[in-house]
Design a protein around this nucleic acid. Structure first.
Lengths: 195, 195
DNA sequence: GGGGTTCTTGACCGAGCGGTCATGAACCCC
DNA sequence: GGGGTTCATGACCGCTCGGTCAAGAACCCC
């Protein structure tokens, strides 16, 4: 748990997290036992408790890291873009492509949101990403390019569209991420209204 | 399980479902044991297995009924309204107020979506509601009142906005359902764009 | 009030869980 | 090659879980 890890150790830990995340997403967190994880990795049980102090801690770690990666990807995509509306668009596109590549982690987000044990941790991470978007929205409002309403509301609306479309069209229908991203961007900009 | 139930029996069954739904939402489905449910109701374990053949069946039944209620509420709100855009709006408002009164059931929807055992059943119910909205959207497109894009995409975008705003503003911030509904409707109509 | 049906009890079961630990292998630096 | 650290084993523990069942209470209709 609180050990100094060698390069070998860190790699082992990473593999455990990756494998466990896949099992959790496929089978559910509770139905997936520690025994199942270590058997799947072909190691003894002690290995698990060498790297993690509990099953719960492992899950929280997976969550934390996934949120971190997603945010990095967003920031990387946005770069130095000056236009706030375009920043929002780039964020949506980055999220879509990350979600397409990591659908199993999205499932874990969903599970975490449904269990009080994990939802606070999820919230904390998501608030960071929300703040990013809120900043762009505020800028857009000041520039008169975005409707003058509560920026937090607009931000969550954008997130809602992005996540829901990702789930229904990328995950369940296997549509390409960039097409779904196009649709999400269009909806966020204009809603249902024609031109 | 497959018994003829008297009025008394049906009431008992209803109470069990209600109590279990509350516990599932608060504690999670897996962490809530059958023993905990029957103790909370002050009855013996046999009662549970008289009314339900398994914990899983109970959960599916709760899910089914919740989806049924939500849909009924939507259809009731829409009534005979002729304007398709207005029908969509009324649907959003009805969903918001139902969600505000049944946030625990929304939590169960979320959990169900995260576990493969339950998500098919959830999907089936949601597809019905989706079809309703798709019909309104198509009408709106024909009338030239809605952007001419894949109606299914537009529908899911509307659902995404509604659910996400409900969760973040009604559940987590306790804002009044009708105000959140206003925001959702506005976003769905115009998106981010000003006027 | 007899007899069939509906409902209730709670001790009990086998299985599986998360987590521990004594023991030792592998590795690394001197 | 000795000695400290890191990593690995898997039998084992206490416990709780979902589910069963023999027994009987409550209810209902004739």
């Amino acid at each position: 748990m609180n050990h100094r890890l060698t390069a070998r150790g860190k790699e082992r830990r990473r593999q455990l997290m990756e494998f466990a995340a896949a099992r959790f997403a496929e089978n559910g967190y509770h139905p997936t036992s520690v025994a199942e994880i270590v058997q799947g990795m072909g190691v003894g049980k002690g290995v698990f408790y060498w790297y993690f102090s509990s099953k719960e801690e492992l899950f929280l770690e997976i969550l934390r890291q996934a949120q971190h990666e997603l945010r990095r990807r967003q920031q990387q995509a946005i770069g130095e873009e000056p236009d706030p509306l375009r920043r929002i668009e780039l964020g949506i596109r980055a999220s879509m492509s990350w979600l397409a590549e990591n659908r199993h982690l999205f499932t874990l987000f969903q599970f975490a949101a449904s269990e009080e044990r994990f939802s606070p941790s999820l919230r904390r991470g998501q608030d960071v990403a929300v703040d990013d978007v809120v900043r762009h929205v505020k800028e857009g409002i000041v520039a008169g390019r975005i409707r003058d309403t509560d920026p937090l509301v607009l931000t969550h609306a954008v997130l809602g569209v992005t996540n829901h479309l990702a789930r229904n069209f990328i995950f369940e229908r296997g549509e390409p991420a960039d097409e779904v991203a196009n649709a999400a961007v269009a909806f966020c900009l204009e809603g249902l209204s024609p031109g």
